[in-house]
Design a protein around this nucleic acid. Sequence first.
DNA 1: CGCCAGGCTTCTA
DNA 2: TAGAAGCATGGC
Length: 278
Amino acid sequence: MNNVIYNDSIIETDSLTFDPDVTFDCGQCFRWDKNEDGSWSGIVGTKLLTVAKEKDKLVISGANETYFNKFLRPYFDFDRDYPAILEVLKTDSILRDAIDFAPGIRILHQNPWETLCSFIISQNNNIPRIKGIIKRLCETFGEPIDGGCTFPSARQLAGLSVTDLAPLRSGFRAKYILDAAEKVANSEVDLDSLSVVPLDDARNELMKIKGVGPKVADCALLFGCGRLDAFPIDVWIKRVLARFYPNGFPENLKEYSGIAQQFLFHYARNCESIAKTF
DNA sequence: CGCCAGGCTTCTA
DNA sequence: TAGAAGCATGGC
């Protein structure tokens, strides 16, 4: 996206290809919260950011220019040509409806460890409680920063016990979090390789962790490793596939099937005329 | 009270 | 090797 302007600690971009209301609320991230004035605040790395709509622009504050270029540009995937990708996806009639329903969804490129850990917590769970567990995880084991806490690293969690994690109230998932932390901290699972190796190899690498199956692995790959070809299949996507793609998802769109998945997920759950028929 | 929540592991036939 | 049960917790 070339219409991103840095201006005295404020980043302006257009609101056409980035709508915070759907991007932050479509189930891909858990550390952004809506403020009373309609803006969003969330922690990315070591900074608390705020994203606010102003007319047809978005204003992102909380980062200096160096931080923006090094961390936020990749996080928001600002250098990817979303309009061009969406044009291709819209050659499919179902995707055209899904994209028109909420055109401002972007796939965030989050930290791989944070994403993996978050989606381990997400299993058989609902979004408000997922956010609560993650909040307590950061407050208990992360580092304090201005306005909140960082997400604890795998190294910070490795070596802890299930009893140590009791304050999170994460239930049966605590042992999975610890297994992930240990395997990542001792390099038994190599997160750095996941963005470059073949997709199946990346999934199998992640599934060495207890409590990580195909769905959690694909979410970590799509939302945390920039693997836009990863296609997480949950109950909603299963319904979409069964009804709209009985012969399988179009082969020619697989390169960006992860982006397509997120539009379909949001569409199936939030478009009333579709959701109520499932 | 029972059911469900962006699943996965374990048990069973 | 498919299919169901069990899993912690909390909201409704």
